[in-house]
Design a protein around this nucleic acid. Sequence first.
DNA 1: TTACCGTGTGGAACGCGTTTCATAGCAAGT
DNA 2: ACTTGCTATGAAACGCGTTCCACACGGTAA
Lengths: 310, 310
Amino acid sequence: MANIRDIARQAGYSPATVSRTLNHSGYVSATAAAKIQAVIAQLDYVPNDIARDLSQGRTANVGVVVPHLNAPFFTEIVNGISGAAFAADYNVVLLQSKYDAALERTYLSQLHRKAFDALIFTSRAIPLTDLVAAQQYGAVVCCEDPGTQPLAAAYSQREAAYLQAFRWLKGQGYQHIALTLSRDASLSATSRATLAAFKRVFGCVPTIVETNVTTYQDGYRVAADLAKTPDLDYIFSNGDDIATGIRQGYLDQHRTAPALMGQENQVSGQLLGLPTIDHHFRQIGAAAFDLAATGRVASVPVTADLLLCR
Amino acid sequence: MANIRDIARQAGYSPATVSRTLNHSGYVSATAAAKIQAVIAQLDYVPNDIARDLSQGRTANVGVVVPHLNAPFFTEIVNGISGAAFAADYNVVLLQSKYDAALERTYLSQLHRKAFDALIFTSRAIPLTDLVAAQQYGAVVCCEDPGTQPLAAAYSQREAAYLQAFRWLKGQGYQHIALTLSRDASLSATSRATLAAFKRVFGCVPTIVETNVTTYQDGYRVAADLAKTPDLDYIFSNGDDIATGIRQGYLDQHRTAPALMGQENQVSGQLLGLPTIDHHFRQIGAAAFDLAATGRVASVPVTADLLLCR
DNA sequence: TTACCGTGTGGAACGCGTTTCATAGCAAGT
DNA sequence: ACTTGCTATGAAACGCGTTCCACACGGTAA
């Protein structure tokens, strides 16, 4: 495979001139450019990206850490990131974490090793302080409220949305409300925000909380538990698919499910006409990419919408 | 940032010995290894991946071309690929194509430029022959039956599944069947397979074919059309979400939808108890990665399952 | 005419890990 | 004593595009 020196030799110029031609950086005569382009075309030459990356000390790759791609939160955010990345001539490197702390550290070390210029954590198992520390090696962005941590972040303003949702529930007269959460509050800021909002509105902790609920199947499974609770009049779930699973679980026990709220504005929830919360994850992804590419350390909160009629 | 020569100097050895230590490639004394490790730890040194890639002429990146991430076909296949890639210490670079031929060619040229070692096309707008030609620059894998083209491929044996499905429909006595397809048969091998199987079983072209149907919303939309057709007794759709949208479209017109079949084994179809075809896209993704990493040019057909009871 | 500027171009160093090859020390085999 | 055969280690080249710096040439302003 031809390299820049081959082109230079055959065109009768130096590698420097070929490089300038390739990059349109000026100081190349029309004759030189023509000759060089001719040789390039003839030899089917394209510059080697790795060599360019090495000499420029960058890769134009953004790493995106996702636990998995089974939730709309992640697919939508990845969609948002990759749309913006493409527009900026960056590539998106998908990094599966499965919420495994060791894996996530692997990715941080890849940032150190220059495998990518920036790293976006859509979710995480390791503490935020680890992300903060990794910033010395490249831009790091998280997709949650970073609190007081000096870390770039693009995220849904969940608390506000949850407050609004719970106030609406209260206004509707619901009193015995169960929550489903993806991960334990000790691990997940989302779960903490949900619980905090609940407490603020209702003044107490929720009657029933089901954790580790992330799929339709999980929803179906916890329905058995929930159905045992007397007087339950509302289930606030963490996803439309999940809410759908819960409802089906009730049905298969020949029971009618209480009223339900979903999240994420998915097809399944639309089908059932469930109220939901749209967090605009695509937009969050695009914002996260922007932070990653510019290296700005800023907080970009995005307002979530409570959709009561669908 | 420290480099390998800094480590060598401070440890009192040569870069070669440091490199051997890092890669556990032997011929390093215990004392040398200890001293070198100490300096590495002290300086927080990690080797630069770009430099390693350059000297080894590889990146350990696989590019995955996806039109978008809104269909389970793509998210599942990407899941399969990235699971296998992680296990093999490869990174997955997500390449959005939006079925844009120019974009897809951009990615082929990135293969030429060594931005990745291999390229997997989950779907495509450009002709297969372009992929075949690009193999001189690295492994190229497609996710459809490559026919006689000398190209690595991992794909669902759709024809067989569609034949089985249509035979079942015929056995059930359905006669007026509509199909929904994602893209026109001129563009999509999947659509062609669907139509061919239909013709083989029923001996004629289907009554109604709706194309450009890929989402719940599309299904909802085409329901208006479908509802105008008299005597329609079955709708064979190209996705559970789509089938669900169609059904809802009928309901909102105060009509009852004909019997429906979905595909992809999604939550929404499960909810409605629709028959479906499971193409095992995860497994296909894993197989595609394997072909990409080894560079084997082989065909890996995967049997799809017709699920009548869910 | 001298001084200065912009254009065009090349040599060489740079970024950094890997790898080949040569060398040296040392022990086992004959 | 002498060849073999390791182990241990370093110098230098390699992969390849970029970029700094120096130099030459033609033109222009003083």
